[in-house]
Structures are given as C-alpha cells and as structure tokens.
C-alpha cells in the first residue's frame, strides 16, 4: 500500500489497520455480541451506522450463515465462528486480508469450506490474502506459496511446482537412512 509501517504514528497506524482485514487463529469474536453485531462492529469503523445491520446480514449470507445472524458465538460451531470472523474481515472490502492460521482449529471439511470461501470472495472483491498456515490440506487454493523454514525462505513457487517438489516419489531414499 506504499507505506512504511515502522515508526508510524499511532493515528496513521489506525488508518492502516482500517484498510486491513484480520482473521485470527482463534476467531476472536466478541462473546457478548451476536454474529451480526460482531460484523457490524467492523462496519461502524467506516461510519456506516445507518445500514450496518443490512451490510452485516448481507455478508453473513455470503458466507452461508444467513440462518445464524442473531446467534451468539457460544452457540455457533468452530467453523461457523470462523466464518463470522471472515465475514467481519471482508465486510469493509479491505485491500489486504491477513489470515493467521485460520483453519488451525477446524476439521478437514470446514477448513476446505473456509479457504474456498475466502478465495471466492477475494476474487470477487479483488483483494490480496496473505495466509500463514501449517495446514497442507489447503495449499492448493494458493496462487503463490512461500515456504518458510525456521525463519528462512526455502522456496517461492506456485502450487504445482510446490507439489512436484514435495512429491514423495521424487524424494531421495537416502534421506531416510541415518
């Protein structure tokens, strides 16, 4: 976005944060608010006080939670909570979404749903998603994979090359011999 973040003033930092959607490993929803209100909290940031509910409901329907609009996080499943969190991150159409292990606490099916959903919505809005993950079941949705090992860049490829490089058939049998 063309800004140096380090040493930025507090007020500028707030501006930058408003242009970024966050998805956390733990969903970090507000327990005392319903799904809709959780999303509306983000809408308020852009000053959309009047139609915040409509906006929130619309995005919740997109993530497939139209029937859970007025449920509190406690009565939602893990996948549903994460989808509310995604709705919250997407509702302001940010340029960048930072996702920190969004599928870590989810089973295979929910993980798959969530990443495909993220991918579809991102394509629709034309935003960038930067996802950090250990979950190799969802790697195929990525357009670019950067492999970090112990803080060093190991590879920077697209999914096809990445899969080829990690195909067990190509592994050197010697690495299993001590």
């Amino acid at each position: 976005m063309g800004h140096e973040l380090v040493g930025m003033s507090n007020a500028r930092l707030v501006e930058v944060r408003r242009g970024i959607g966050f998805i956390f490993q733990a969903h970090n929803l507000f327990e005392s608010l319903t799904a809709c209100q959780n999303v509306a909290m983000a809408v308020e940031l852009q000053g959309g006080f009047r139609n915040k509910r409509e906006q929130a409901v619309a995005i919740l329907e997109k993530v497939g939670l139209g029937h859970r609009v007025d449920y509190k996080p406690n009565s939602l499943s893990g996948g549903q909570k994460q989808r509310v969190a995604i709705a919250r991150a997407l509702v302001n159409r940010p340029q960048l979404i930072l996702a920190d292990e969004p599928t870590a606490a989810l089973d295979k099916e929910s993980s798959r749903n969530i990443v495909t959903l993220l991918q579809a919505l991102a394509k629709e809005d034309g935003c960038t998603i930067l996802m950090v993950t250990h979950d190799n079941r969802i790697l195929d949705v990525a357009d670019r994979i950067i492999n970090l090992v112990d803080g060093y860049l190991e590879s920077d490829t697209n999914p096809r090359e990445f899969a080829a490089a990690h195909d067990p058939k190509n592994l050197d049998p010697k690495m299993f011999i001590l």
Binding site: N10, V14, E15, R17, F22, F24, A26, N28, M41
Partner: peptide, 14 residues
C-alpha cells in the same frame, strides 16, 4: 484483553 486487542487490530482508535 483479546477482545480489546481485536478492536484495536480492526482499527478502532484508543
């Protein structure tokens, strides 16, 4: 604390 931090991460002012 986490909720306050989330608010902050979302871009709410102090």
């Amino acid at each position: 604390y986490a909720e306050y931090a989330t608010l902050k991460a979302m871009g709410y002012r102090n």
